[in-house]
Amino acid sequence: MQPPAEHVHWMFATGFLVLGLCLLAEAIVGPEVWGRRRWRAYLWPGFAFGMGIFMWPVMVFFTNSTIHTLAHGAWAQVMMLAGGAELGLVRGKLKSPLWRLCIALAFLVSGTAFLIHEQNGWYFQRSAFLHHLIGWTMVTATIFPLGRALRRRSLVFESGFALTFVVLAVFLYCDRDLAPIFGHLSPLAGNPHR
C-alpha cells in the first residue's frame, strides 16, 4: 500500500516547511537565543537528517529509472551529510564552522540532480516544470548557505537560506503526478487522472 508519488512530494514539502519555519525563527532571534534550549538547537538539523533517511525508501520504491535512482540516492546522502554536519556542530564534536559548507554542497548537488534527472522540457507537464524550477532555484540559492557558512549572523544569508526552504515547500506542494502547467501538457505525458 504505497502512497502515490505526488503524496510523497507533499510529505517532503511539509518537512521543508517545518525546516523553513525553524530556520526563519532562528534567523530572526539569532543563533544564541535559538540555542538556549538544547532540544531546539538539535531540532532542524535532526529533522534534516531524518528527511535524508526517509529519502532512502523513496529511492527504493518510487524510482523507475537508473537516473531517478541515482538522483534520489544523491539527495538522501547530501541531506544526511548536511544534517549530520549541523548536528556535529551543535553537539560540539565538530569545531570548524566550515562544516556548514556541507549544506551549500547539499544545495548544489540537489539542484544539479534535479536538473540532470529531468529528461523532459519545461512545459512537458507540471512535474517537469517543477523539476527545472526547483533545480535552478537550488543551484542559485546555494549562495545563501555559502554566505551563511562564511559570514554567520548575516540577516540576508540566514533569512535567504530559511526562505529557500519555504519556497521549496510551496513548489513541492504544487507537484502532481500528471497535470498541465500554464495550460501546457504534452500528449506524450498521458491523461491527467485527477
Binding site: 519555519l21 525563527a25 532571534v29 537565543v33 535559538w34 531546539r40
Partner: peptide, 17 residues
C-alpha cells in the same frame, strides 16, 4: 505545522528572547 510551531516552538523562543 503552523499550530505546532505556534504552540510548541514560539512561546519558549519568545521567553528566551
Amino acid at each position: 505545522v503552523g499550530i505546532l510551531f505556534a504552540l510548541g516552538v514560539a512561546p519558549g523562543l519568545i521567553e528566551d528572547l
